[in-house]
C-alpha cells in the first residue's frame, strides 16, 4: 500500500472512520442498532405512578 492507494481510498476511509465513530458513540450510550426489542414510548399522565396506561388484555 502506498500514498496513492490511500488517496484513492480516501472516500472509503472517510466513510469507514465515520462508521467507527458512530459505532463508538453507540457503544458509549448503549445504543443497539436494529434492536429486535420493539418499544413504544409514551408519557404517563401520572408521572410518578406505577403505571400510566390501561391494561391491555391479550390471548
Amino acid at each position: 500500500m502506498n500514498l496513492n492507494d490511500l488517496k484513492g481510498l480516501k472516500y472509503y476511509l472517510i466513510y469507514a472512520l465515520a462508521l467507527l465513530a458512530f459505532f463508538t458513540y453507540s457503544g458509549m450510550v448503549g445504543w443497539k442498532w436494529f434492536n429486535p426489542t420493539k418499544t413504544e414510548r409514551e408519557r404517563s399522565e401520572r408521572a410518578n405512578g406505577t403505571h400510566g396506561r390501561s391494561y391491555i388484555y391479550h390471548k
Binding site: 426489542t37 420493539k38 408519557r43 404517563s44 410518578n48 403505571h51
Partner: peptide, 9 residues
C-alpha cells in the same frame, strides 16, 4: 419515575 416516560414492549 422522574419524567413519566414509558417504554412498552
Amino acid at each position: 419515575e422522574t419524567t413519566g416516560e414509558e417504554y412498552n414492549f
